[in-house]
Design a protein around this nucleic acid. Structure first.
Length: 655
RNA sequence: GCUGACGUAGCUCAACGGUAGAGCAGCUGAUUUGUAAUCAGCAGGCUAAGGGUUCGAUUCCCUUCGUCAGCUCCA
């Protein structure tokens, strides 16, 4: 204590490496003012020894200090955090009894959760936004204060949600509260100097949200908003939201006539129209060809099975909430027999494995099946193709010896990269998901399994994140998150290790020691599900598929009826070489038909006029190329097209 | 499943509690087109379904189904 008191000055190191000696207790704002008034005005917060701090918080020790202006993610987080407080301030003024939950900054914005007797209506939101503008105009200063636990309890005695949070703070944690105008919040901070810096914001929507994210607890009313330092940034963000909705696969699916979901049949069940079915067909072909090259065998298994199978596998009762209820027995069977639609293929593949004796020489056995399964997903979670109840998994199960695990995982990661990275050009991110709360099997087995996955990932030199508690109930997994063009992440590929099913089904192989051993089992799906994958592809390509995947690859358009027979011949010749060609000889203008072809995102429009018929050429218009057409002999076009399809080129016109 | 909003022609959208409309698509005819919408005519609806209030309901209320956003869950 005596030593500290003796230190009247501290050393502040700035980003450029320069050092300033200032009195202890100097704030970042004072440091900024020393540098320049302009910097002080532009400052939003500061990085003190790597932590984001309020400008007004006294610095009492030697520190590195960086003044944060309005650019950069940290400064935006501060703005949005303060915006959340301004929102809560407004809500508290309009609804004095409102309980306050959490109000954090998030990507692109912020939210705050309120406990109110009646949910907010859109009109309420407009009114709240108005009030929030007043709060911003008043430029209420944010004041940070550290308080004792007792003091905090007193401060928030009317806020049960805050009290609950308060009691979770550890004994060593600093309890800080922030005050702006009439509003006090238990909050770690940091904040802007005042609400006056919150200028360009918009409340987006309200929604229910469970307190603490727990569906057993009360539902609070969450208000989402976005905030930016510059008006241009706000406008750009709102514009981006609009653009994003234009590439929504549900809308494009309708426009391009790819698929439908019909109320008469039920939610989450997909009708693949001819054009969408083409895409599914190509994906099936691709993966089936590829796994055959990689030593898998294809199998087919029943869609319904006796429910005892799922009892033995452990799906019942653990996974029952996701399964459709049991249906009755087949004719002639006992009334006590029940059947279930399969939610997963693993038990079926296990039965193929166990249908005969296996030798260590047979392993690994890799069984693949592009199969439909049915899962009774909660209605509120369904979302176009991205979350459905009738799923088509490109599923496979690998049965192998312990010493083969790492190599098999390694190979699966290679297959994943081949399909996602090379063929489709998608960026993806890996997560290692560990044991969940609801699980089967003991912790020792989980330890071994989790380590095996980590080892394979590391051997491949892949970066991965941890998803603690995110594993399947039967084993840990490596999940692949695919980012679509809008930036949202979806789980696609999944690679799962499973020690449980082999145990439950008492799987065996005869080892070189002539004794029975238990194989290890792995589950994996590269696309994840065809539905989700196609949905992602639609959004990724904005419906403009590469030629090999395009439902309609070529549209042949005769200029007048005189060329219709010749155009028909060209179309039929293309179709005979398995090119997906369509003839558009409708009684419409050329412009009309070109426009229609472009809107349907057909890669190549082949125009046939009198000159082309005479010379045996075609006038090819590539999608999106405007009126830059290319005239070439039909043979040459055919060859180029064939090469482009065969190479699965992602870029139009490139082989 | 939960909270809220929404559901009108094939699609996108209008219509104070007072006879349901438009554009596109479709059909018929004219037109025969050289690279993003030719013209005219016609047809298209138990306003998601069911119940209620009312002289009268697309409009107000209730129930069910579905969609959307978010939460929870998940491929």
């Amino acid at each position: 204590m005596a030593v500290e008191a003796a230190r009247l000055t501290i050393r502040i190191t700035l980003p450029d490496g320069s050092v300033r000696e200032v009195p202890a207790g100097t704030t970042a704002r004072q440091v900024a003012e020393q540098i320049s008034q302009g910097l002080a005005r532009a400052a939003t917060s500061a990085k003190v020894n790597g932590e984001t701090w309020d400008l007004s918080r006294p610095i009492n020790q030697d520190a590195s200090v960086e003044i944060l202006k309005e650019d950069g993610p940290d400064a935006l987080y501060v703005l949005r955090h303060s915006s959340a407080h301004a929102l809560a301030t407004a809500v508290r003024q309009l609804y004095p009894g409102a309980g306050i939950g959490f109000g954090p900054p998030i990507d692109d914005g912020f939210y705050y959760d309120f406990e109110v007797p009646r949910p907010f209506t859109p009109e309420d939101l407009a009114q709240i936004e108005e009030k929030m503008r007043e709060v911003a105009k008043e430029d209420q200063q944010f004041a940070r204060r550290e308080v004792s636990r007792e003091e905090a309890r007193e401060l928030f005695k009317g806020d049960p949600l805050k009290l609950e949070r308060l009691e979770e703070l550890g004994p060593d944690e600093i309890i800080s509260v922030y005050t702006n105008g009439p509003f006090v919040d238990l909050c770690r901070g940091p904040h802007l100097p005042g609400t006056g810096r919150i200028r360009h914001f918009k409340l987006l929507h309200g929604a229910g949200a469970y307190w603490r994210g727990d569906s057993r607890r009360q539902m609070l009313q969450r208000i989402y908003g976005t905030a930016w330092y510059k008006k241009a940034d706000l406008d750009q963000y709102l514009h981006r939201l609009e653009e994003a909705s234009k590439r929504d696969h549900r809308m494009l699916g309708k426009q391009l006539d790819l698929f439908s979901i019909q109320e008469d049949v039920g939610p989450g069940l997909i009708f693949w129209h001819p054009k969408g079915a083409v895409i599914q067909f190509q994906l099936r072909r691709l993966i089936e060809d590829e796994v055959l090259k990689r030593g898998y065998d294809l199998v087919y298994t029943p869609h319904i099975t006796r429910e005892d199978l799922f009892r033995r596998s452990g799906h019942l009762p653990l996974y029952e909430h996701n399964q459709y209820p049991a249906m009755g027995a087949g004719a002639g069977e006992s009334d006590e027999v029940r059947y279930r639609a399969k939610p997963m293929n693993c038990p079926g593949h296990v039965l193929i494995y166990s249908s005969r004796q296996r030798s260590y020489r047979d392993l690994p056995i890799r069984l693949a099946e592009v199969a439909n399964v049915y899962r009774n997903e909660l209605s509120g979670t369904l979302h176009g193709l991205l979350r459905v109840r009738g799923l088509t998994m490109d599923d496979a199960h690998i049965f192998c010896r312990e010493d083969q695990i790492e190599e098999e995982i390694f190979q699966m990661l290679d297959l994943t990269d081949h399909i996602l990275g090379k063929v489709f050009g998608l960026d993806y991110r890996l997560d290692l998901a560990t044991r969940p709360e609801k699980k089967i099997g003991n912790d020792e087995a989980w330890d071994v399994a989790e380590q095996a996955l980590a080892k394979a990932l590391e051997r491949r030199g892949l970066k991965y994140g941890m998803d603690v508690g995110g594993g399947a109930f039967y084993g840990p997994k490596i999940d692949v998150k695919v980012r679509d063009a809008i930036g949202r992440e979806w789980q696609g590929t999944t690679i799962q290790l499973d020690y449980q099913l082999p145990l439950r089904f008492e799987l065996e192989y005869i080892g070189s020691d002539n004794k029975p051993h238990r194989p290890v089992m792995m589950h994996r799906a590269i696309y994840g599900t065809i539905e989700r994958f196609v949905g992602l592809l639609i959004e990724h390509f904005v419906g403009a598929f590469p030629v090999w995947l395009a439902p309609e690859q070529v549209r042949v358009i005769p200029i007048t009826d005189d060329q219709a027979p010749a155009a028909k011949k060209i179309h039929e010749r293309l179709r005979a070489t398995a090119v997906r060609s369509h003839l558009d000889d409708r009684n419409e203008t050329l412009n009309y038909r070109i426009r229609d072809g472009e809107l349907m995102k057909v890669p190549y429009i082949v125009v046939v006029g009198a000159r082309e018929v005479e010379q045996g050429t075609v006038a090819v218009r590539a999608r999106g190329a405007g009126n830059k057409q290319e005239i070439l002999p039909l043979d040459a076009f055919e060859q180029r097209l064939a090469a482009e399809i065969a190479s699965r080129s992602l870029v139009l016109g490139k082989i």
